[in-house]
Design a protein around this nucleic acid. Structure first.
Lengths: 211, 211, 211, 211
DNA sequence: AATGAATGAGTCTTCATTCAT
DNA sequence: GATGAATGAAGACTCATTCAT
């Protein structure tokens, strides 16, 4: 990765040790998010980010190696809010359709609240190989989780047993995330509830849960 | 409105009149596609495109106003192959599931054959407002068409009557196009047939066609 | 050296084909020489060179990849004037001491006329591995040539036979070039004739030509 | 001249009073030498030097005003080892040729042991007016000393009386120092003894000592 | 006296676009 | 219509230096 001549301190995504450093870094991440959402990834200039953060130009490079790295930092900040539906605990008193609805309400709310940036993530992932890999890995993890649920529903005789759980999970997740994009980013005219209903309904039908 | 000094030819997307002009323009579109697929949209330089096309730098501007315009020209080239599933004629002797499968085989084949560029279209649409509008409009048209089919199936008592046809069509189209992206662009391990089966199966289930 | 992804036109030291290109390149080389002599190598800015040449900033990169390359071009321009003493034809009617004097007069005149730049060559060679190699190779070639003369004088019984010709040639060349530097660059108080006499005298003595 | 706001400590080359300060300064000088020898003068960064020294960035400026000053400090460290040949005492029992040889053995050994840094001194002298003056002054002093010897040898009838002692001393010193550079820095293939012999031989011949 | 994060002036370099030939 | 050298605005990035702790 690095060789003997590489004596750079190599800024990483790590939080800085000192309180001052942490403050500057946080300001940069916040400023970056503002600028990214306002100007998009390609048009965001480093100096706009530092100006927005109220720090000097050079300070950017104390904390990040380049635009891609701040972007990753902003993404990381959102990680927890941004979990794809993982359908909670299927043994809850609620039925499977309720589980599916609840998970999507959580996911779609998070997407709605961060819509501008979520759109960017899709866009930028296509440009940056590192981000792309991370995003695909995350998609795999979500699908794995949901595939587990599907498998259990099949075992209980509740879901269509002829579906291959993993590809099915991928496909249904894709449906949900693209619809979120369409509605929250591109203002497709659907209320939050209509969106939730549509997705829940289609998941339920697709898995053959309906009766 | 115009005066004697206004000599701008104002390049359009129109085919040039002269044979020489047409040849140059075609070379540029072909070169652009190669370069876009190789380097992506953002990293594609005008001079790379002209070099690939084997024409002079300046000739680019005889035919296009900028990168976005060549991109649109490449897209136009693909337009016909690239129709989303529009499910043919539902009165055909085949059943509705067969119609759905046939439409997706057509769509997925086209996507597979142009995977690299299709990925770009998604990417670039997010960058360019003009392209975005065009893509959304196209998505709307596809969805409208499929919504018509769904409505007819509902009228015939074959499809779940509680589904709202238009949002449903959008959602199921989104599922298909994202899965195509996942498999053909990001090499998700699914054969062409497995992909077709999965999507057809999920469409059928989601619409409640299954018996 | 280059890999398959390297599609750059890669500007070289070659003269450009078009007359316009040649004019621009010549202006840049001339401007570079002026700026280098005025500001030194490290302090010479690309924009100063282009301003001096009366061309746009970008034009620099049409012709050179960087500061080192213009510098090499300026050096090449001087190559012919800047031959180290190669002592002419030893069979001339003049005696060996006259040959030595004549060669040094030529060399020292050239050095004097280009003193400012010659000083830079020494300086920059130490910074740039490519230039260093070129300079050492040139020094080797000069020494080889003079070693040939020394060998012939030894064969004729005129020069000290116990001297190893090649190291001797290197050492005496070094003496001449450093003295030229001292006098013409650092203004050591010696007239041109005094310098010529001193060097010629020391060469003659060192080779054992004196009687 | 000074007012209450003038609190600058004005760092000098002086050793600091406190033991801690002395330790830091010594570490910086040692680190600077390492970095200079590794990266050259122009590419040596202050932060590289402090990192190498294991001290904070700011500490550099407690002890030095800039890169040129550390460089001078490293040079000063070498001063004693680095005396040009000053030919000892000509009244020693040994003959003049032996004196010359002995002096060059001392000089060349010192050069060899510090070759990397000696090369830098030449390079940097050309960049920094202060260092240049110091180096020229030192060269003058060495030449003066050797000119004294030459004068005495001439008075004793041992050396060519037609040579002007001072320019001669400069020229022969130049020859020795450039050959040392060629052999020890640029790896010209000559053993230490061959180099010593060549230089001693040429000095002796040039001064007309031979018989 | 030491620290190291912050600073921003200073350059290099790229590349879309123009236009004389 | 074609050409490709010229252009210069725009931004990324570096690193010597400062200064609050």
């Amino acid at each position: 990765m690095t060789d003997a001549t590489d004596t750079e301190p190599a800024p990483t995504g790590d939080r800085p040790a000192s309180a001052r450093g942490r403050r500057t870094r946080d300001a940069l991440v916040a400023g970056a998010r503002t600028v990214f959402e306002r100007d998009g990834y390609a048009d965001a200039r480093i100096t706009d980010i530092t100006a927005e953060a109220g720090v000097g130009t050079g300070s950017f490079y104390t904390h990040f190696a380049g635009k891609d790295e701040v972007f990753a930092a902003v993404m990381a900040e959102l990680q927890d809010e941004m979990l794809h539906p993982h359908l909670g605990d299927h043994t809850a008193p609620e039925g499977p359709v309720d589980s599916i609805r609840r998970a999507h309400v959580a996911y779609l709310s998070a997407y709605r609240d961060n819509a501008r940036f979520m759109a960017l993530v899709d866009q930028v992932a296509a440009l940056d190989p590192g981000l792309l890999a991370a995003r695909l890995a995350r998609g795999d993890a979500f699908a794995e989780r949901n595939a587990g649920l599907i498998r259990r529903l099949q075992d209980q005789g509740l879901a269509d047993p002829t579906l291959d759980p993993l590809p099915t999970a991928h496909a249904l997740n894709a449906m949900a995330s693209r619809m979120a994009n369409l509605v929250f980013v591109h203002a497709y005219p659907l209320t939050f509830d209509e969106l939730t209903d549509t997705i829940t309904h289609l998941w339920a039908n697709a898995l053959g849960l309906a009766r």
